[in-house]
């Protein structure tokens, strides 16, 4: 059978890109002034940390787990960045490395004791929030100069947030989807028994994936502080739900190691742009989260349609 545009595999990977394009097109149509360097930069600046958090969540979803603590983790990282990393850089770096190590340890604990990730990360979300409150009881702190300088860096022609998202997507795509190691890592979500029989350690893959999630969580928090220049203990709590929705929007499956890094980033940007579109349409911000829910359902409905098409062809 020729690979036409109706091939379900191509259709499925097109859904995230199409929904992003439709949304961006709608924004350009409603408010043509956004079709500029500054317009795009303004809209997408706050989307960049969400994209990083979504990639973190994607690593966890790849091994059939779910992280309900990424929002509070990013908040804690933001608090560390705005306080220790700024005042005592060495202490800050050690603390952030400790955060990544803690994530890796969680992966080991979950694997060794065969624990449900949902409950463990739920408990950890209290721990991260508690640490963040201890560190920064009231909103404040300030971003290290080099960090805000980096995030606010004005690239010629193309906004930093777009370039960074693009590079992030490509790096993770090639590392996870195209490399031999990436195939093993995804395989441990798709068929753990087979990967183990083939001689790979499931413990190692789980720890790797959790450490990667911790690393991208740290990146997300640092970029967030670079943009907002200060932090508070609740700054990123909504990232937990955003990141799950972003991965799913981007074509990731809930189980079986089927994920798409580029799709996940497009999913995160789509969710972030919904708010802009609504405000350009003068719809009150109260409907923003509802509109995100509706878009999520519409995209999932589209995908379910594609899947049924595939079944009929098979």
């Amino acid at each position: 059978m020729p690979r036409t545009i109706l091939d379900p595999k191509i259709l499925r990977s097109l859904v995230p890109a199409l929904s992003f394009a439709v949304l961006l097109g709608a924004i350009f149509y409603v408010q043509p002034r956004t079709m500029s360097y500054f317009g795009l930069n303004l809209m997408l600046n706050l989307a960049l940390p969400i994209a990083f958090a979504t990639i973190a969540q994607m690593f966890i979803l790849t091994v059939n787990d779910l992280d309900l603590s990424i929002g509070s983790f990013v908040s804690l990282v933001a608090c560390i960045t705005a306080t220790w990393l700024n005042e005592a850089p060495l202490l800050g770096v050690v603390a952030l490395l400790g955060c990544i190590a803690a994530y890796a340890a969680l992966g080991a604990l979950i694997h060794l004791r065969n624990l449900p990730s949902i409950v463990v990360t739920l408990g950890m979300s209290f721990v991260w929030s508690g640490c963040a409150i201890l560190l920064l009881p009231s909103p404040g702190g300030s971003a290290p100069d080099w960090l805000s300088g980096l995030v606010k860096f004005r690239m010629p022609f193309i906004p930093f947030s777009i370039l960074a998202s693009l590079i992030l997507g490509l790096i993770v795509h090639f590392a996870l989807m195209r490399s031999a190691t990436g195939a093993v890592l995804r395989g441990s979500g798709g068929n753990p028994q087979a990967v183990e029989r083939a001689g790979w350690s499931l413990l190692k893959t789980k720890v790797t994936m959790y450490a990667l999630a911790g690393f991208f969580g740290v990146m997300s928090g640092m970029i967030l502080v670079g943009t907002t220049t200060s932090a508070d203990a609740n700054i990123a709590l909504r990232y937990t739900l955003f990141s799950i929705a972003g991965v799913i929007l981007g074509g990731g499956e809930f189980t079986g190691g089927r994920v798409s890094p580029i799709g996940a980033i497009l999913g995160a940007l789509t969710l972030a742009l919904v708010g802009s579109l609504l405000s350009f349409l003068r719809i009150s911000p109260e409907w923003q989260i509802g509109a995100q829910g509706i878009i999520l359902i519409v995209v999932l409905a589209l995908r379910s349609l594609v899947n049924r098409l595939e079944e009929r062809q098979a």
């Binding site: 799950i244 929705a245 809930f254 109260e286 989260i289 509802g290 509109a291 999520l296 409905a301 379910s304």
Partner: peptide
């Protein structure tokens, strides 16, 4: 309905609908 019709995992279904319900609660309880 979402779980059955779209064949999506319950966590995702209840997550999406909670977004909508949350908006309704904000608008209704303003």
């Amino acid at each position: 309905l979402l779980i059955w019709l779209l064949r999506i995992p319950p966590i995702i279904a209840t997550l999406s609908s909670s977004f909508i319900v949350q908006s309704l609660a904000i608008v209704y309880g303003r």
